[in-house]
Design a protein around this nucleic acid. Structure first.
Length: 207
DNA sequence: AACTCGGGGCA
DNA sequence: TGCCCAGAGTT
């Protein structure tokens, strides 16, 4: 088993305050932005949400939105038709079951349309300061390459990582690993020669 | 478990 | 032109 603590240390040394561009402190805005961010670049989401949140501010605004109008407003985002429906349904559910407030538990978050385990963990970690490890495709891929995880099941990897990484660093670890995945440990043609984790990495295919 | 959604930016 | 992008819902 690779040394997860050492890996975390090296990652957070390179990315001391890891932040992707989705920098919302408002839980509801972060929720909408995170749903929009699936399979899409954060930069693109930022461009869209900057305008979007001037027109739609509350769950009521989204719940009562005209679907076509909302689709048009986010049409530069990946899967925009699905996501327009998702955030409308999600907002209705928020109003119906949670008084329009974003809930703060995994179980409750997972009842919201468009919110899966990864998105729920983003909200818990980044909006509510709870200890959570969002496992996206980057975290999944790299954790397995490094040898700190041994599964293609995100929830299982989440459990594996939680056992090895200090809990106060879970959220920043996830963010740092995503940045590392974009810049260095890419899905195809990874830049192993420039990798700060080369010595720790147990990936048989590392070059 | 496999399939679907899906447009723009960039090499 | 081809490749890639903070996944989730449906079948």
């Amino acid at each position: 088993m690779a040394n997860a603590k050492k890996i975390t240390e090296l990652l957070l040394k390179k990315y001391p305050h890891p932040r992707i561009a989705l920098n919302f402190t408002n839980p509801f805005e972060l929720l909408i932005a995170t749903i929009l961010s699936a399979q899409c670049t954060d930069v693109k989401v930022n461009v869209v949400t900057e305008k979007l949140f001037k027109k739609y501010k509350t769950p009521e605004d989204f719940a009562n939105a005209d679907a076509k109008t909302l689709e048009h407003a986010i049409s530069s985002i990946t899967y925009y038709k699905n996501k327009a429906r998702m955030i409308i349904e999600c907002s209705k559910k928020l109003i119906k079951d949670f008084h329009g407030k974003v809930p703060q538990t995994m179980e409750e978050l997972l009842t919201l349309h468009g919110v899966g385990r990864k998105t729920a963990n983003v909200i818990l970690g980044n909006a509510f300061g709870k200890q959570a490890i969002p496992v996206d495709t980057h975290v999944l891929r790299i954790s397995n390459r490094l040898g700190i995880a041994h599964s293609n099941n995100p929830e299982k990897v989440e459990q594996e990582l939680m056992m090895q990484i200090p809990n106060d660093k879970w959220t920043s670890f996830s963010l740092a690993l995503i940045l590392h995945g974009r810049e260095t440990c890419t899905a195809k043609n990874p830049k192993c020669g420039k990798c700060i984790l080369y010595e720790e990495c147990e990936w048989p295919e590392k070059r």
